[in-house]
């Protein structure tokens, strides 16, 4: 077996298992920890896909910044652990899981039916080139400069919003 395939299966297994863990843990802190693990597995997968820049950003931004914020809030609020997942509203929850499973089957079926790899043959060199920080940076500051500007406004709005909602003094 190819080493890439083995790596893929290991990382995919981690990603899949941790994602299930995230939604099934009673304790929210545990969920968050599993989510961090999941993000690391994804970063690994991105590396497998030659997306080095995204892999690094995934670790720095997602696992590093966003999840720390999550954990920080969790600790700050010190919320009680939930009751067991299937204690109340069992019918609805069961139904929700059923729907999700159905959607998954549907998606998987369509992915196989759409069979994208039939038309898309990976060009290793192009793929590696696409993932470099140079290419992405080039795109970001040429073609996608306007969305980039908008991202600035987005972050400004988010900062103002977070301040309005969470600042201590309330005039």
């Amino acid at each position: 077996m190819n080493i890439q395939l083995i790596l893929f299966f290991v990382l995919a297994a981690i990603a899949a298992v941790t994602s299930v863990m995230v939604i099934t843990r009673k304790n929210a802190v545990l969920s968050a920890v599993f989510l961090v693990l999941n993000f690391f597995a994804l970063a690994g997968l991105y590396l497998l896909l030659n997306a080095q820049f995204i892999a690094v950003v995934q670790v720095i931004v997602y696992a590093g910044a966003i999840m720390v914020l999550f954990l920080f809030v969790l600790m700050l609020l010190n919320t009680e652990t939930e009751h067991g997942l299937f204690v109340d509203k069992r019918g609805i929850k069961f139904f929700a899981i059923l729907i999700s499973a159905f959607v998954f089957v549907q998606l998987a079926f369509l992915i196989f039916k759409g069979n994208p790899s039939r038309t898309l043959t990976a060009d290793e060199a192009a793929s590696i080139n696409a993932g470099t920080i140079q290419t992405i940076g080039h795109h970001l500051y040429t073609d996608y400069i306007i969305p980039f500007e908008v991202a600035g406004f987005l972050l400004l709005a988010a900062t103002i919003g977070a301040l309005v909602l969470a600042k201590k003094k309330f005039e």
Partner: peptide, 25 residues
């Protein structure tokens, strides 16, 4: 471009999330 749709949507939505709860008391 779908980029613009997405960024515009999120800019609007994030402002709306905050505006909906503007009086946090």
């Amino acid at each position: 471009d779908i980029f613009m749709i997405f960024m515009g949507l999120e800019l609007m939505s994030i402002c709306f999330y905050v505006l909906a709860g503007i009086n946090r008391k």
